[in-house]
C-alpha cells in the first residue's frame, strides 16, 4: 500500500514538474524544481542502494524532458546519497522513531525547514553549476541557484501545509 502511494506520488510530482512548473521562472532567474520533494519524502528506513537507484531514475526522467541528459540525475543521486548523513546531523534529541516520516506534520517546522533547505541547496548548487559546465558567469549562476533554492524550498513547505495536512 505504502509502495503504491510512493509510485503514484512519483508520477504526480513528475507531471507537475514537466507540464506545469517547467515554465515558472520568477524574475527570469528563480526556478522551481518541486519534483525533488519526492526524494525528500522517501521513508527514513529505506535502503541507501535503493534510494540512490530511485534518485537516478527520477533525475534521468526529468532530464529527458529538459534535454539535459545526466545533469538532474547527477544532482538527484547526490541528494539521495547525502540525505541520511544530513538527517543524522539534524536528528532530534531522541533520535528518529520507527513511525516517523520526513513530513512537516511529524517533525515540526524547524526540523523540516532545515532539512528541506539543506538538501535543496545541495541539489540546486550541483545542478546549476553542472548545467553551466564552467566557472564563467560564476556570480550569475550562483545568484540563479540561490534564488531558486529559496523558491523551491518555499513551494515545498507550502505544499506541506496544503496537501500533507491530514497526516
Amino acid at each position: 500500500m505504502n509502495n503504491l502511494s510512493q509510485v503514484i506520488s512519483f508520477f504526480i510530482y513528475l507531471v507537475l514538474q514537466v507540464v506545469f512548473i517547467r515554465h515558472w521562472a520568477l524574475f527570469d532567474v528563480a526556478f522551481c524544481f518541486i519534483y525533488i520533494s519526492f526524494l525528500l519524502f522517501l521513508p527514513f528506513s529505506m535502503n541507501l542502494f535503493l534510494m540512490m537507484l530511485i534518485g537516478f531514475v527520477t533525475g534521468i526522467t526529468v532530464d529527458l524532458f529538459y534535454d539535459t541528459l545526466g545533469v538532474h540525475a547527477f544532482s538527484c543521486v547526490l541528494l539521495t546519497y547525502m540525505r541520511p548523513y544530513l538527517a543524522n546531523l539534524i536528528k532530534p534529541s531522541g533520535g528518529y522513531e520507527a513511525n516517523m516520516k520526513p513530513y512537516l506534520s511529524f517533525m515540526g517546522f524547524r526540523w523540516f525547514l532545515t532539512y528541506t533547505v539543506l538538501l535543496t541547496t545541495i541539489h540546486h548548487l550541483s545542478l546549476f553549476f553542472l548545467e553551466a559546465w564552467s566557472m564563467n558567469l560564476l556570480f550569475f549562476t550562483l545568484s540563479k541557484a540561490i534564488l531558486s533554492i529559496v523558491f523551491t524550498s518555499f513551494v515545498i513547505v507550502l505544499f506541506q501545509y496544503i496537501f500533507y495536512k491530514e497526516n
Binding site: F56, G59, T68, L69, G70, V71, A73, F74, V77, L78, L130, W133
Partner: peptide, 8 residues
C-alpha cells in the same frame, strides 16, 4: 555519479 558524468 560516474555514469551521470559520462552521460553529460
Amino acid at each position: 555519479e560516474f555514469v551521470c558524468t559520462w552521460l553529460i
